[in-house]
Simulated assay, not measured.
Amino acid sequence: FHAHAAYLQKMLPEGERVVISGRMEWFNGRPTMVHPDHIAPIDEAEGLPLVEPVYPLTAGLSAKVLRRAIGQALGRLPELPEWQDDAFMRRHTFPSFGDALSRIHHPNVPIDVAVEGSAWRRLAYDELLAGQVSLALVRARIRRLSGRPLVGDDRIVEKLRAALLYRLTPSQEFALGEINADLADPERMLRLLQGDVGSGKTVVALLAMARAVEAGGQAALMAPTEILARQHLA
């Protein structure tokens, strides 16, 4: 709590009743509030926020300073034209972008900051949509760039397959077929091979690399850690 006597006398006048709001903690078996967020007379209690967002802080940055900065940023937010379809907005009960930001940072009721609340869902959807649109733009730009078709003759691929102690699974064969089709296409490939640990991604990558070498190209397998690099080398 603030240590200056003058401050305490001003905020907590002797004999008066006040409303204190903040984080409650337990000390020696008793509830305590070390740093109240709000102190107000009884007649001003209705003006205190019932719900406040909690932000991660760092040394030298207090919650009040951060809230003030966020409030100033929201005050500078311009009126933006709605980029979502009206019918879609009504179907999902989405607020506008500015309203959603305001609810998240200045909530009036708990649902404003709940994951299932309309404000949270609107912002989450916008973030997901922005990511997908960005990827689509990157893909479109890459597709416009000419590539080099890589069509192999299976001489290396078949040797690698014969050296394996197992057959590829249908999923591996499907993924490899998709990759080979992309390699043979004159457009540049933009593909992510995704699978659980131990599902057989590395052998698919190895066979795709062999296809590139058969076509006269070069291939490099990069590993994110030294341990994984040593495993591949072995």
Rank of each mutant, 00 (worst) to 15 (best):
D85V: 03
E44Q: 11
A208S: 15
L176R: 07
F88D: 11
H106I: 01
D196M: 02
R103H: 05
R144Q: 12
I142T: 01
A40C: 07
F174R: 15
D182S: 08
N180C: 11
M189S: 08
A181R: 15
P31E: 12
D196H: 05
R121S: 02
R191C: 10
P186T: 06
G98L: 01
G152D: 13
D153W: 04
P170A: 03
P49A: 08
E187T: 12
M189V: 07
G147I: 00
A40V: 15
D196A: 13
H4N: 13
R121W: 02
A220S: 02
R211F: 04
L221A: 12
Y7K: 07
D182P: 04
P170C: 06
P41Q: 01
F94C: 02
T32S: 02
L165P: 11
I70V: 13
F27C: 00
L206H: 10
A175D: 05
L150E: 14
E158N: 08
S199T: 15
R121M: 06
N180S: 09
F88L: 15
Y55R: 09
L66D: 01
N108K: 10
V65Q: 08
L207E: 13
T32M: 03
R211W: 08
R90N: 07
R144N: 03
M209D: 08
G15S: 09
P13S: 06
R211L: 06
